[in-house]
Structures are given as structure tokens and as C-alpha cells.
């Protein structure tokens, strides 16, 4: 099992002597790379804007339409229009992040440097918490504090504890679903390439399942990005829409 579990390049920042903040430098690197790729895609696709869209502009407009459809399927565009850019960022960032770990992984001095940033629960739970926090913020902002608070006692007052638990459960499931899918995919890829392919015969034997699993992981990564975006909009709509 040692071949599967690599270390993480940790960096400890002394925070004014109060506490020590730990950075996983691999996460920092991969988050930066994923963000840079998304940003590059966005810049390239909007470099030459035209009334008649071509090439990358078409692609980006398709993404925008796709997210718009997701939002429209969960809430009114009048409420949901403000989340359009959030949805676009989430779906592109998560998708690119999921794809990053597929082609290879890089370990240096026993530390795992190149991987999917979404294969780390810290990253996915951060995103999930951000989404849930945003849902509460917009719930208060758009509906007022009293009607936001009343939502916790509907349909019966004794549902209150369950509603509270639901919020935490939402956060956890949203983050851990993404993490679990991507992490499991990477684990299997590492196993295939590391354990099975340690001999020449094993390498040949590993080619077919590697290809199959990579293809499947592309599919899973796309689906997970879609699900993450979809659930984000669902949670937001629960808090924002008045008809729920």
C-alpha cells in the first residue's frame, strides 16, 4: 500500500506565534494551475468577440447557455441571474480540476505534487462551504431575515433540528461526493500504473484497464462538475426562491 500513499509537501507558516497555518504546496500549485487554465480558456474564447460567434467563443457561449439552463431548471431567472457567473466559474473550475489528475501524477522526493486539486477534501469542502454560506447570505439578503428564519420551521416547528442537520449534511455531501469520486479515480490510476505496471508484463496488462479507467474518469469528472454546479443552484434556490 505504500506505493499508493504519497506524502504531501507541507509548509508551516507561523502565524504571529498564535498558531501555525499549514499550506499543502501541492494544493496551492494545482489550484493555481487549474485557475490559470480556466482563465486562459476564458480569455482565449473572448479574445475576438463577434456577433457571429466562431470557435472558442461558441464553446464559451455554450457553457454559459448550459449553466443558464441549469439555473433555469431550479429557479426563476429573475432570482438566479445573479448566480450565473458563480455557476460558470464552478463548473469550469471543477471540470478542469477533475481533468488535471488524469493524464499523470508527479511525485517528487516522495511528495505528490501533480494531482487533481479536487482529490483533496480540504479543497472540495472549502468550495462546498462557500456555496452553502453564499446560499445563507443570499437567503437573508433577498428574502429578509424573518422569512429566511421561518424557513427553518417549515412545514412543522419540530423540523427545526432536522433542518439544521440538513445544512451541515448538504455541505458535507456536496464536498465529499466530489472528493470521493475524483480521489477514488486517482487512487485506481495510481494503483494501475504503480503496482500493476511495476514489471514489463504488468505494464502491458495495465494498458487496457488504464485507458478504460481514464476514459471513465473523464466521464465521471464531467458528471461531477455538472452535479456540483446543479446542486449549488438547487441549494441556492431553496434559500432564495419564495415558492419552496
Amino acid at each position: 500500500m505504500n506505493t499508493v500513499h504519497h506524502g504531501a509537501p507541507l509548509y508551516h507558516l507561523d502565524f504571529f506565534g498564535i498558531t501555525t497555518i499549514t499550506f499543502n504546496l501541492a494544493n496551492v500549485l494545482m489550484i493555481t494551475i487549474a485557475s490559470a487554465i480556466v482563465f486562459l480558456i476564458a480569455v482565449i474564447s473572448t479574445r475576438r468577440l463577434a456577433m457571429k460567434p466562431t470557435g472558442m467563443q461558441n464553446f464559451f457561449e455554450w457553457v454559459m447557455d448550459f449553466v443558464k439552463n441549469i439555473i433555469n431548471s431550479t429557479m426563476d431567472w429573475k432570482d438566479g441571474g445573479r448566480f450565473h457567473i458563480l455557476g460558470i466559474t464552478i463548473i469550469m473550475y471543477v471540470f478542469v480540476s477533475n481533468m488535471l489528475g488524469l493524464p499523470f501524477s508527479i511525485t517528487y522526493k516522495g511528495d505528490l505534487w501533480w494531482k487533481s486539486p479536487t482529490a483533496d477534501p480540504v479543497v472540495t469542502l472549502t468550495l462546498a462551504t462557500l456555496v452553502v454560506a453564499l446560499s445563507h447570505y443570499y437567503g437573508v439578503k433577498l428574502k429578509g431575515f424573518s422569512s429566511y428564519g421561518k424557513e427553518f420551521f417549515k412545514p412543522f416547528w419540530f423540523m427545526f433540528p432536522i433542518k439544521i442537520i440538513e445544512e451541515f449534511a448538504n455541505t458535507l455531501t456536496l464536498g465529499l461526493r466530489l472528493y470521493g469520486n475524483i480521489y477514488a479515480g486517482e487512487i485506481l490510476l495510481t494503483l494501475l500504473s504503480g503496482t500493476l505496471a511495476s514489471t514489463v508484463g504488468g505494464a502491458f496488462a495495465a494498458i487496457v484497464p488504464m485507458l478504460a479507467w481514464q476514459g471513465f474518469s473523464v466521464f465521471v469528472g464531467a458528471i461531477q462538475a455538472f452535479i456540483f454546479c446543479m446542486l449549488t443552484m438547487v441549494y441556492l434556490s431553496h434559500k432564495v426562491s419564495s415558492d419552496h
Binding site: 498558531t19 497555518i21 494544493n27 489550484i31 466559474t89
Partner: peptide, 15 residues
């Protein structure tokens, strides 16, 4: 005992 807030903060800011 280390607080791994670095990744969280970085992810949030980058996002």
C-alpha cells in the same frame, strides 16, 4: 495540531 487553513484560504481567495 497545525491548522491547515492555508489551503482553505488559498482556495477561497483563488476562487
Amino acid at each position: 495540531s497545525n491548522f491547515n487553513g492555508g489551503d482553505i484560504a488559498f482556495q477561497l481567495i483563488m476562487f
